[in-house]
Simulated assay, not measured.
Amino acid sequence: MATTAIPAPTAALPDPPDLTGGALGACCTPLGTAPLSAHDADQLAAVLKAIAVPARLRLLSMIYARGGDEACVCELTEPLGLTQPTVSHHLKVLVDAGLISRDKRGVWAYYRPVPGALNSLAVMFGPAQ
């Protein structure tokens, strides 16, 4: 019996916000220095929306507190008291926001901080120089 391969979907996922440039780039000035463009405001709002959920803030803190080491999703479910699918959903939102990166190995996914992402966010809310 012959099997037919199902083609993979071709629709591309939207690019995560660029935390090294644009609204959140370290090169950009603080909010108090110049008004944001509509694009930059949309980009910043997407990141703020991603971290506006307490479970996501806790996940971010658990991942960033590892000092750059990766965290397996299997290690993050119990401390939060949430199911693995719920934790995976929250982690996906943080990945899409560009705050953490994901590496899938077998059935588990491993997460690590995106270098400079939180610093770029801090620059946006820092005092004008």
Rank of each mutant, 00 (worst) to 15 (best):
L13F: 09
V93L: 11
L60G: 05
A41Q: 14
N119C: 06
T10L: 15
V107D: 12
L24H: 02
L91R: 01
A23L: 12
A109M: 07
G22T: 06
A8V: 14
D18S: 15
G21C: 07
P14G: 10
L24I: 15
S88C: 12
R112W: 02
L57F: 02
W108L: 00
T29H: 05
S120K: 04
R66M: 13
L94N: 00
P7L: 12
D96Y: 07
Q129H: 14
V107W: 08
K49Y: 01
F125R: 03
A65H: 05
L44M: 14
A38Q: 05
L91Y: 00
I6M: 10
L118R: 06
S88G: 06
R102V: 13
A5P: 02
L57A: 04
T10D: 08
V123Y: 08
V114E: 13
S61N: 04
D15K: 15
R56W: 07
G68P: 02
R66N: 05
R102A: 12
H89C: 12
I100V: 15
P30Q: 06
G67Y: 09
T3Q: 10
D103L: 01
R105D: 04
I6G: 04
A46D: 02
P14S: 11
M124W: 04
P14H: 05
H89F: 09
W108R: 13
G106T: 03
L76K: 04
T3W: 10
P17M: 01
C72L: 05
A26C: 09
V95K: 05
V47M: 01
P79C: 11
L48A: 06
L80Y: 11
A50Y: 03
A12I: 12
V107I: 13
R66Y: 00
A34K: 12
A117S: 13
L48C: 14
L44N: 01
A34T: 14
L31Q: 09
L76E: 06
P113H: 03
Y111Q: 06
P30I: 07
A2M: 09
A26E: 08
A8H: 12
M62E: 08
I6R: 10
C28Q: 12
V123A: 11
V107K: 13
A109G: 15
L94K: 03
G67I: 08
T3G: 11
A52L: 04
R56D: 02
A26L: 15
N119E: 14
M62D: 05
L59H: 02
A34V: 15
P14T: 11
V95N: 01
R58F: 03
G25V: 10
C74N: 10
L82G: 00
G21T: 15
P35F: 08
M124R: 14
V107H: 14
T86N: 07
G22Y: 00
Y64K: 09
D69G: 03
A122W: 00
S37N: 07
L48D: 04
I100Y: 03
V87L: 02
A128R: 13
P115Y: 00
G68L: 09
A23G: 15
L94M: 03
S101R: 13
P17Q: 10
A97F: 04
P17H: 04
L76F: 02
A122M: 15
L76C: 03
G25N: 09
M1H: 02
L99P: 02
M62H: 06
Q129G: 15
I51G: 00
L44D: 03
P115H: 01
P14E: 10
P17V: 15
L36W: 07
A11R: 14
A65L: 08
A41T: 10
D69K: 11
S101Q: 13
A50Q: 05
C27V: 11
